[in-house]
Design a protein around this nucleic acid. Sequence first.
DNA 1: GGCATGATGGCCT
DNA 2: GGCCATCATGCCA
Length: 188
Amino acid sequence: MRFLLPSFYTRDVVDVARDLIGVTLLVDGVGGVIVETEAYDKDDPASHGYRGQTERNAVMFGPPGRLYIYLSYGMHWCANIVCGEEGQASAVLLRALVPQAGIERMEERRGMVARSLLCAGPGRLCQALGLTRAQNGLRVDEPPVELRAGDESPPIAVGPRIGLTKAVEQPWRFGWAGSKFLSKRFPA
DNA sequence: GGCATGATGGCCT
DNA sequence: GGCCATCATGCCA
């Protein structure tokens, strides 16, 4: 298996978002293959970093290769990987993965739902992997987090991002085309 | 201090 | 497809 180098993250956030499809993410040994991501750029009105640094988004403005985790809608956690150059405040939102390792732990956290719903969506993914504010700022190349390159290059689907009111047209959502584990189908 | 808003998801029709 | 729970955050007064 191949571990991702720091130079993987220090590139353009859109490229990293696309290249994370097919990468395996584990947190404390629980996880699977990433099949859906979205890119958020610093010049992007939909990004938390757009209006400058605040207490919540401080991790986005720090070094790349760290988790930026925040609470969404008062009840769901969403996890990002900080990318680009330090201070750029760009990040990739992790939206879905194929449950492969530690499925029992995922089911303890998520309940006995269909396998395809275990990690399909940013909030579900965080719940299944046990990601909360406690993991905000963790490095992705040190325990308990682990990222391994995939050994095939997946068919990539591209589309507009989900759930936004700003910059809704930007095609910065990426997915493993045809995967059953996506949070939502990509528009044809 | 008050208030509008949201990178969602579960449940209902 | 629609509704809405639920609260941290950020902006404004």
